[in-house]
């Protein structure tokens, strides 16, 4: 079994409503453009699958929440960059 490179970053949700349906779907759609695996967790909590809508909904992440993102795979850095941009842009919501 080969060890995939692991990459991590931390984001803070800027959009007013946190990860409700539309931003959760956008997040998962963006993650699924990449091959790397993605785990997402709130600090100190269990990670969820960042490529699953239900996974993201289970975070119940609200405005101001901090999320830790860990990507495993060759295109992990590109995936994390795309997700950071999506979150920093407030999901084009406001």
């Amino acid at each position: 079994m080969s060890e995939a490179p692991s990459h991590a970053t931390t984001v803070t949700l800027q959009n007013r409503n946190g990860l409700h349906a539309r931003p959760a779907h956008l997040f998962v759609q963006t993650a699924n453009r990449f091959a790397a695996e993605l785990k997402v967790n709130r600090p100190g909590e269990e990670p969820v699958n960042g490529k699953s809508i239900m996974g993201i909904m289970m975070l119940a992440a609200e405005h101001g929440s901090t999320l830790e993102l860990v990507a495993d795979g060759d295109d992990g850095p590109e995936m994390l960059k795309a997700l950071e941009e999506l979150v920093a842009g407030g999901f084009d919501e406001d």
């Binding site: 409700h20 349906a21 539309r22 959760a24 779907h25 809508i53 239900m54 909904m57 119940a60």
Partner: peptide, 8 residues
């Protein structure tokens, strides 16, 4: 929570 806020 998802289905009650989903519009897409």
């Amino acid at each position: 929570r998802f289905i009650q806020t989903a519009t897409d």
